[in-house]
Amino acid sequence: MSPEIHTLAGAYALHALNDLERHQFEAHLAECPDCQQQVAEFHATAARLAMAVAEQPSNQLRRRVLDEISQTRQDPPPVSETPRRSSKGKARPARRRWAMPLIAAAAVLVALAFGVILGHNLDTRRDELTTAQARYQDLARLLSAPDLRTATGQSVNGDSSATVAVSRQLDQGVLTTADLPAAPARHTYQAWLIGTTGPRSAGLLEPAGTPAGAPLLFSGLGSSDKIGVTVEPEGGSAQPTTTPFILFPMPT
């Protein structure tokens, strides 16, 4: 491992790396106990900088936080990674509930987008980086859209689920899936926007070589009022050839 990467520990602890560099450093961190120790110490030092600028927020904020936590289910401990079974296929309007999983999904997308250039010198490969950043920016813009609405639905057998977040203003959306098994050999998952004019492909999920759950960005919502996922022959189809195993209403 190049000694140069060790010098990134400070910038990493202060969240001063861009996403590409952060992923690179985290890959290094996983196999460098000394760096982990140093980052932990730097986080503690940075926390002192924060405590020095403490300011009491309004009492209304306290009320809002306590109200929200009383209605927010806690994540299970990380050791038991059991799939979450939430209430059956109901569309959930609450935005903040889904903001975090979507941001986590965004991080996956960024990792994937950047994955192709990991391991190369940071100061080269500018154009690949620009492409990846553009993709990330699209997602970031979407997730911060003021009219972002989300909905989630489960597969017919209840084993997997999909969450969609759409902005009508931007005419864009992103679909993420959870607990989706690998597609059958020589087949792929395809997402469809379904409306009065029939189904229109939103794109292929889980392209070869990427982990299931990679978010799918799509645009052109049109008149679609449902979103569905089907199994299609490798490469996808122009029109669905199987019945959607996930199908649920788009958020309104």
């Binding site: 503690a44 929200e68 936590i69 927010t72 806690q74 401990p77």
Partner: peptide, 21 residues
């Protein structure tokens, strides 16, 4: 701040006292 404090509540089970304050 609200998002952070709600996330603190939601993800508290990931906190390990032996790894930091």
């Amino acid at each position: 701040t609200q998002e952070v404090l709600v996330e603190l509540w939601r993800t508290a089970s990931r906190y390990h006292p032996d790894r930091g304050s």
